[in-house]
Design a protein around this nucleic acid. Structure first.
Lengths: 345, 345
DNA sequence: TTGAAAGCGCTAACAC
DNA sequence: GTGTTAGCGCTTTCAA
């Protein structure tokens, strides 16, 4: 029975009584308050340990009106990128005495909104979000903003009220990827991407167009394929590409797994990668270096991104820097050239 | 400044005052207590909404000595399986008014132990764990058990004190996988797996041996390859397999991504899959149907497993069934036959 | 350097 | 059907 788990609960009063001091002295000692003699502190801590004391986080939160908890909402946890981001976040958060509540929007605005509400009810001290595929209206974040809960978007961001944004330079990454393809001699480059309302996809697309422009190649809308970047979508896109005449000679996909599904389907139809079509993905998912040919891609520092997000959020909460909350931080990303895009010269 | 977020906080006392009723009436109304007239309940709820009331979860937890929070510790979040498990857990938890705190052990016993401690400090009502790669000593779970916090292991489990286990029948799955290979005519089947101290790997290995025995093929230790099932390990294992003489004709890997890395490396060296070596993986990761050839694998119902875990935990917390906490629940898994294992007959 | 005391917002036993 | 009241365990101001 889970019932009797409380009757052993030790409080600061029990410690105070045992040591014949006041509860305040115990409370202060336990947090190394400078006004308590180190002798007393020592005694209190020993007694606490001996009695198996554990601080009651709820009484503390109730009193302090601060939860030391940060909420994290991501579209989906199933990628290596997200798992790295979360690991980075957890590390910095724990080092600073914060805990994380993590939830998935599963790419729908509706679940995202309900998650935001849960986080709000849980009184997180700060909220961290990477937007769902189809979020267009941001009003579910209003209560967060109105209650002065700091809001940080990362990766899939929005320029929304006082929220901070932490991203990579998707424009530059897209431009680099496509410039690389152009340098390989590609002239007809397909770009496969997702909802252009999401900054990550829009910026990569702008980078694609810029690179074309740099090489005096006009943008042809038929080379823009938009879908949800799922594996299935990658297969279908392959069919679409196969039906193009002349056949494209380059392919820049906004996501590795989709690139791989597409590449594999193209190969099934006798297309040689990179000879016939050179391919560049995005994310540097581990699988990208285990496919045949190994996939050229953009490397994203997920772990670092997670750390930066939390560092900035916490320093804002500490009042150290408020500026971050009205600003955008851009992290590095780099092109990793592998076999899938290098044409013999 | 995050400071003034409190001065707008509305409490049940404010509502009580505005309506000229007692705080208890407000409290009761807000939770649909049957003793309050529906008329009063209605009024209270309206007033609460109008005043922008939100319940203080800490005062509630402090009073009720229950957090309605469940802790989840998994090795790593980066797989489709884990993300499905978590999604299933979240769904059932939320439906029942519970929240989840999720953390990753990143496959180390050390971080697992520190996560358990954090969960304990956070006073989760129940703890859910899938064990790290190298956890051998379980004493970090002792405080959980001692405080009568229900503990449920899933997937990677341990027969430990009062903990419940929720798993698939890994023995049967392994047996099925290998029997399938044997039916394809394979005689020299390599099994690649991980730490046999983890039930999932041990049971699959037993299934492998059982299948061989059923076909009167003696187990040859040289066909057992143990590593961490990473992509790199898959590549290395391929080298090891290539050096075997005679070449194996079947391969059963305890994990899809590793199977794929291995398969891809074998192909690089001119091995034909499935003609030369038939391959079966494990997990039914989405990528498995997008490689060439598509990978035969064992399908795991992650979402369902997550739901079952939470359902059992909650019904235990409700006192509905205690029996689950001393028992093992086995879910179905099934072999999905694809191209990588089917030899032309 | 320490103590007394009030109160964070809520729940629930007990009273009416 | 509703109200009174006493805490849950902690922090912190004020006083000594």
């Amino acid at each position: 029975m889970p019932a009797d788990k409380n009757n052993t609960e030790v409080t600061i009063y029990d410690i105070a009584e045992a040591l014949d001091v006041s509860p305040s002295t115990v409370s202060r000692s336990l947090k190394n308050h400078s006004s308590i003699s180190s002798d007393t502190q020592q005694k209190v801590k020993e007694q606490a340990k001996e009695m198996g004391y554990r601080s009651n986080i709820f009484a503390k939160n109730l009193r302090r009106k601060k939860t030391n908890t940060l909420g994290v909402i991501v579209p989906k946890l199933n990628s290596n990128f997200m798992s790295s981001v979360i690991a980075g976040m957890e590390k910095v958060a724990n080092e600073n005495g914060y805990n994380l509540i993590i939830s998935q929007s599963l790419e729908t605005a509706q679940k995202e909104a309900s998650n935001v509400e849960t986080m709000f009810e849980s009184r997180v001290d700060g909220l961290i979000v990477s937007l769902a595929y189809d979020t267009e209206d941001y009003s579910h974040f209003d209560p967060i903003i109105e209650n002065n809960i700091p809001l940080v978007f990362f990766d899939r961001v929005a320029y929304y009220k006082s929220a901070a944004n932490i991203i990579i330079d998707n424009f530059k990454a897209g431009q680099q990827a496509v410039t690389h393809l152009l340098k390989q001699g590609c002239k007809r480059i397909v770009h496969m991407t997702s909802n252009l309302a999401r900054n990550v996809y829009e910026d990569r697309f702008r980078g694609y167009k810029q690179a074309l422009e740099d090489y005096d190649i006009p943008f042809d809308p038929k080379y823009l394929i938009q879908n949800d970047l799922s594996n299935q979508a990658g297969q279908q896109a392959a069919q679409q590409i196969l039906s193009m005449d002349p056949l494209p000679d380059g392919l820049f996909v906004a996501n590795d797994t989709c690139a791989i599904a597409c590449m594999s389907t193209l190969q099934d139809h006798g297309i040689k990668i990179p000879e016939d079509i050179a391919v560049v993905g995005f994310n540097n998912d581990p699988i990208s270096s285990f496919v045949n040919p190994k996939l050229t891609t953009i490397n994203y520092h997920g772990n670092e991104m997670g750390k930066v997000v939390i560092r900035n959020l916490i320093s804002h909460l500490n009042g150290d820097n408020n500026i971050a909350m009205t600003n955008t931080i851009i992290l590095n990303a780099e092109l990793i050239i592998r076999e899938s895009s290098v044409k013999a010269s």
